[in-house]
Write a protein that binds this DNA or RNA. Structure first.
Lengths: 223, 223
DNA sequence: TCGCTTTCCAAACGTTCGTTCGAATGCCCG
DNA sequence: CGGGCATTCGAACGAACGTTTGGAAAGCGA
């Protein structure tokens, strides 16, 4: 941890090994926020630098290109999310002598992104950005999503340990279905659900939603 | 069925009440194909008109704008998909004296988009376009997705009839999870699953995938 | 203070895009 | 045959974009 001053708009984005670079921090924070709210396509480099109060050329100077900036934020945030998930899985593993039950494995997968999505959470914007980048990102982003599955491996293995009678192929498919459930928690989908149910579904209750998702997915795994 | 000539590149897109308008048909077919393959953003009006062999101004003349063209294709295709689903639900309802079991309701929801995705299916490109438009579409497209839930109503009601003991709220949420599973069947997600499982998962087997999805979702509903 | 490197800045560049316009063309009906 | 209308065409417009550039400013070790 370097001697970085506590700044309000960008409290934690650029920790790494950089020396100072307040400009870089401002760009990262502004870009993440704007991308999360408006979408990657509808935010220009000019919007970002204006919001951050820095020069137009800053993005290309510090990050190389707009796509590289998106990639950088995406890399940082997904790494952090994966760390949260891995920590929860690790704790569950420790609690159950190396063999956590299915429900706790699934909870480690679901809870971090769900908590991040909570309006009160510090990572709410970050979560929204991740969701945006997943579907609107450049080829490089999609490449990472497609090929980097290292963070999912421990979950697949834990599930196979918890379900030794189940063929691995089956475990992988059900994990795929579960990820689909998780990735579907976007604003537009919640709105649609809200319209369908005439408003009786309230996604703001994170704990209730988590319980529901766990019930559904656990039943699918254990059936 | 009108006396429409069998034309190769656009066999069925523009049936409606138009008189001739081969140009419109060519634009629709070319646009759908290009959008599906490259994405909405990476296809210009020039690409479309060049592919269709028509003048650049044709898109704006016949459809008003590029976004309106996207919306038109999306509207046609989703309407057709909804018709397929409704037909399956109707048949299931008829088979079971007005009270189809959960599994058949879910099958009516899952099977059409899954079949369309099959490489051999006529609607493969259309399905890929729908998926693209769902995430990359304009505000108008997203508005329709968010607010038009009329096609889902019969499914929600059928599920509530099949599960009278379950609170409606619970039914809506589980339907939401099921839709998440369905929407997650994109190329990128299959590739990721492929990478994670070292290639033992083969999404090309539609029937096996459908059975797996039904097993998973049915267990979640009946648990 | 000097010299060097890093960072910042204003301005512009060059490209791509969706859209528009006016004339030309084809087509149908009287 | 001819007038009227829908369609097609080539061409250009104007705006928005990501990126580049060359010089000014600032940080910093010696």
């Amino acid at each position: 941890m370097s001697t970085r001053p506590l700044q309000d708009p960008a409290p934690d984005l650029p920790p790494e090994t950089e020396r100072d670079a307040a400009t870089k921090a401002a760009v990262l924070a502004a870009a993440e926020r704007l991308f999360a709210v408006r979408g990657l396509r509808c935010v220009s480099v000019r919007d970002i630098t204006a919001e951050a109060g820095v020069n137009l050329a800053s993005v290309n100077y510090h990050f190389g290109s707009k796509d590289a900036l998106v990639f950088e934020i995406f890399r940082r945030r997904t790494a952090e999310l994966s760390r949260d998930r891995a920590r929860m899985l690790h704790e569950a593993t420790a609690r159950h002598d190396g063999k956590p039950p299915v429900r706790e494995i699934l909870a480690a997968l679901m809870e971090p992104p769900l908590r991040w999505s909570n309006p009160a959470h510090v990572r709410r914007i970050a979560m929204q950005f991740i969701i945006r980048a997943r579907s609107e990102g450049s080829e490089a982003v999609r490449e990472v999503i497609r090929t980097d599955v290292s963070h999912l491996r421990p979950f697949a293995e834990a599930l196979m340990t918890a379900l030794p009678h189940l063929p691995p192929e089956e475990v992988y498919w059900r994990l795929h279905f579960t990820l689909g459930m998780i990735h579907n928690n976007r604003f537009a989908e919640f709105d649609r659900l809200h319209a369908l149910s005439d408003g009786i579904t309230r996604e703001s209750d994170v704990d209730a939603l988590l319980k529901r998702m766990l019930d559904f997915a656990e039943a699918g795994f254990l059936r």
